[in-house]
């Protein structure tokens, strides 16, 4: 079974909750698809035995020996990536989308496309099974593709080690990487918190999950920080046929557990949060 944990908004405690699920799930493959900010390894210190290069796209590079500064490429580029600086044509690595058009139209063949290969994917073992995670180099696009690569690797790993459960720590937001994370999974868990902005982000996340008709469960984290807001979230869920799998209180022990590189269910399994998470986990996998 593949379970994806996402949140419309960042910082709702998604990674901590996912870590608990990994603890509760027994032997699992844990896939950290929050590739912009892969943090799961901090909790579980995996020993990685495999590292692979991930090519996230291409960037245009000018050979100034050939460039005649005709600026043709500048006129064609739709991404505002090419500009002229004191008679010299400059390509901004940040804005380049890697569409190849400039390299194709350049009359001097002065532009080449070089692969972006600074991102990495790792896989290794940790105390609860196997773990796969990616690291996107700063400023790289195509995190959706890296998410796919991580999920693919996780599936292979599951088959190779005979593990049945794959738990995915998804990226925040609702963009392309999130869609890559949830497409084809068996369960989606949406972690939200009791704030106004988290509710509006959750609504958008639910909308995305709906498109895939996958069973979705909502967890309201830190519900006691604003109980009326938490009520409002529950009412919204009830009105929209979304299952609330449980509510978790604000708990400093989550941070304490994090500092000790543990999930809450390892740090203090009999705490209120630990017990509640156990109930929620059983609800999700049943």
């Amino acid at each position: 079974m593949e379970i994806a944990v996402i949140s419309g908004k960042g910082g709702t405690g998604k990674t901590s909750i996912t870590a608990s699920f990994a603890t509760l799930g027994g032997d699992v493959v844990l896939a950290d698809c929050d590739v912009d900010a892969a943090n799961m390894y901090l909790l579980f210190n995996p020993v990685h035995d495999e590292e692979s290069v991930f090519v996230s796209g291409h960037k245009a590079v000018i050979d100034y020996d050939l460039c005649t500064s005709c600026a043709l490429c500048m006129n064609y580029c739709r991404f505002d990536a090419i500009s002229e600086d004191r008679g010299r044509i400059v390509i901004s690595e940040i804005s380049c989308d890697g569409c190849f058009l400039c390299s194709r139209i350049c009359p001097e063949k002065a532009i080449t496309m070089v692969p972006d290969d600074k991102s990495r994917m790792y896989s290794g073992s940790f105390r609860k099974g196997r773990m796969v995670y990616g690291r996107l180099a700063p400023g790289e696009e195509n995190s959706g593709k890296l998410v796919n690569a991580v999920r693919e690797k996780a599936k292979q790993t599951a088959a190779q080690y005979g593990l049945e459960t794959i738990i995915i720590d998804g990226p925040p937001g609702i963009g392309c990487p999130v869609i890559s994370t949830i497409s084809g999974v068996d369960r989606v868990v949406i972690v939200t918190e009791a704030t106004r902005s988290a509710l509006s982000d959750m609504e958008r996340a639910v909308e995305v999950v709906r498109k895939f008709s996958i069973p979705a469960f909502v967890i309201i984290n830190k519900f006691d920080l604003n109980e009326s807001m938490s009520k409002e979230i529950e009412e919204w869920c009830a009105g929209n046929n979304v299952v609330v799998a449980g509510r978790l209180p604000f708990d400093r022990q989550i941070t304490e557990a994090m500092i000790e590189s543990k999930s809450i269910n390892e740090y203090n399994p009999e705490s209120e949060t630990g017990k509640k998470l156990r109930v929620i986990w059983n609800k999700i996998v049943s």
């Binding site: 960042g10 900010a37 940040i94 700063p138 937001g173």
Partner: peptide, 14 residues
């Protein structure tokens, strides 16, 4: 700014 350090972040902080 958007979270993360990928393209949208760079676009904003640049």
């Amino acid at each position: 700014s958007p979270p993360g350090t990928s393209c949208p972040f760079i676009e904003t902080v640049a």
